[in-house]
Each structure stands twice: as C-alpha cells, then as structure tokens.
Simulated scan of single mutants.
Amino acid sequence: MTQAPPTPQAGFPHLAQLPPRVRMLTMVTAHHISHVMHVIAELGIADKVAAKPQTAGELADETGTDTAALARVLDAATAVGVFRLQPDGKYEMTAEAEFLRSDVPGSVKDFAVHIGNVSRLHSYGELLNTVRTGETAFNRVHGQPVFDYFADKPELSAPFNRAMTSFSGHAATELAKLGPFGDFSVVADLGGGHGLMLSEILKHHSNVRGLLYDRPEVTPGAPALLEKAGVADRTTVVSGDFFSNVPEGPDAYILKSVLHDWDDGECGTILRNVRKAIGENTDARLFLIEAVMTEANVWDFSRILDLEMLVNVGGQERTQRGWATLLAASGFELVKVTRAVPPNNILECRPV
C-alpha cells in the first residue's frame, strides 16, 4: 500500500527529517529567510497586523511599498510560520510573528533590522578572506572596527542598541535570581551600559548596593533607567575604561556579554585589571555572563554567534575549557557554571 505524503505544514523544516541534499539546500538558502524577516521588521508589518489582520494591498498602502512584491515576501514568511494567510486574503498573527513586534518582551524586531543592514552583509561577503587571513572582515570592508563605525551612524547604532537591551531585558530577571549576588555587599557591573542588568540584581537583592561602570559617552543614559527601576539611591555610576582600570572596593564584579567581543589578549587586559582591583580579598568573586560553546558535532547556537564575532567584531565565543584557560592566565579559577536562558551562562570565578 502506497503511503500518502505528509500534509504540508507551516514552520521552518526539521532538518534531520529531510533527505541530505534537501537539508543542504535548506542551509544554503537560509539567508533568504533572514532577509524576509529584515524587511518585515523594517516596515513594522507585525505591529500593523497585530492591530488588525490586513491584506497585502492594505499593508502596501500603509508602508509605501509595491503590493505584488510585498505579497511575495509575506507569503514566504507564512511558509515558515510567520503570519498566516486567511481565506479572505488577510494576514493574521502567529506565535512567531509576535516577536517581530516592537512592544513585546523579548522582541527580536530590532535585531532583525540590524541583521539585514548592508554594512553587515558586505562584511559576511568577506568571510572567505577572513578564513584565509584571520583578518576581521568588518574592519577590512569598512576601514574601522564595528563599534567605531556605528558611533556616528545612529541609523545603525540605534536598532543595535535597542536589540541588545531587548536581549538583556529578556534574560536579566532570570539571571538576577540565578546568581548568588545577594551574598555580596557591593556588586559592580563593568561595561553595564545604562544599568539594566544591575538594576534587576538590586531589585531582587535589597541588601546589595551597586556600582555601574562604563564609558563616559554611555553612563549619562543610566540615571533615568536606575531611577525608573527604583534603585538609583543604591547605585554609584562611574565613568571609565576597563582597558585602563577598574574601580576598587566592590566584592563582586560582573562582565555580561563583554569578553566575547575581544580576543584573548584584550580579554587578558580586562581580567587582569579586575584581578588588580580585587586585590587581597579572596572572598570576592567575578561573574562572567557569556555563552559556553559545547564541544564539536552537536547543534549549538553559540557557534553561530562565534561566526558573528569572527566576521564583525574580532572576538570569539569559548568552550568551558577555553574560558577556564583564559581565566587562569589572568589570576582567576573557574569554580562554577550555571546554565541560564540560552545562550547565557553564569561563570563564577574565584581570585587566586
């Protein structure tokens, strides 16, 4: 008896269930889907459909786009479960589409905008040269490091910064609860931006005071966030550069999603400055909040993040062994790894 083919369903295909050649084609063309999400995010389509289901024509009128072209992009999105086309020709929301809205916790809308920016696409076009030379592709294409390039381009830096804040906000509450931050009197967040992570720690641990440390162009944005979070009276904001020095006094230091931006030499400079600030206080602790890559041959999203570091930033993600080696060279021992919302882990480090 001939078995009927499975009923087609929306959603990104389960690669393990596809024939090998189809799996390879799916992987080779995965960037098409990324570009679709970029267009949807740039045009704010999810916000508009969340307000009310609409046809491609109605959405094209609202966004000033070509109806036929937009319909083809939206139909591609429905194939992977982002929006659903109703019999009346209107697109409605799906669970996946919710995260392309601008006003939901954990939104990836701004990250989708950032991912599709031409500056990033050009640098990924130089991946082969990076493999041949080890040179960071973004620096080669644009003539300067990524954060310097973004500095005077708000159209690039604004969605990137919003995306990073969204990612931090999605995980910060869980991280604040998971880490043993209540065991310390003063927690310093180094490179802590406007203080989102630190404010969550202080909200969940009323006995703790905070020190927020970041570059002079960043810290002016911190008081408003800290005040809104109700922790401004327990937080000291200090401007500086952790490549030069780190404030002394706290008994716990945090580096969240910082060290993966830098190579081993640069990370060593930061870590040695933290170790110097800790001094003889062997009860003090350093907490890294970072991805921890698995060993080879299994799916691990942090390996995709590692390519991002390779191409655009010049840093890298690391395995647990890699983190332990890096820390040992700078006067720390990795004593505990606590898994959190992927790709985050809390790495507790003791000064030695």
Rank of each mutant, 00 (worst) to 15 (best):
D264T: 13
G268D: 11
M93V: 14
D110S: 15
L286A: 04
R303S: 10
A60H: 01
H14G: 11
R23M: 06
V28S: 08
M27E: 15
T173P: 05
P53R: 08
K177E: 04
T338K: 13
T219H: 14
S166P: 07
N312C: 10
T130S: 12
F167H: 05
G314W: 06
R303H: 11
N345A: 15
D261C: 14
D300R: 05
L255S: 01
A158S: 04
G279P: 03
P145C: 12
D283V: 00
V22M: 11
F111E: 08
L271K: 06
S199H: 11
G195F: 02
L288A: 07
E135P: 08
S168V: 03
K228H: 11
A56G: 02
A41P: 05
D300T: 00
L196M: 05
S157F: 05
E42L: 08
V313K: 01
L156N: 07
T2M: 08
V238Y: 02
L271P: 06
L175K: 10
N345E: 15
K336I: 01
V337F: 08
S168M: 06
F184G: 00
S157Q: 08
P5L: 09
E308C: 03
Y124K: 03
H260K: 11
F243C: 10
H204N: 06
I278S: 07
N273I: 00
M197E: 06
V187N: 06
L211P: 00
L226C: 08
Q3K: 11
I33R: 03
V73F: 14
E92I: 10
C349Y: 07
I289L: 14
T130H: 15
G221M: 05
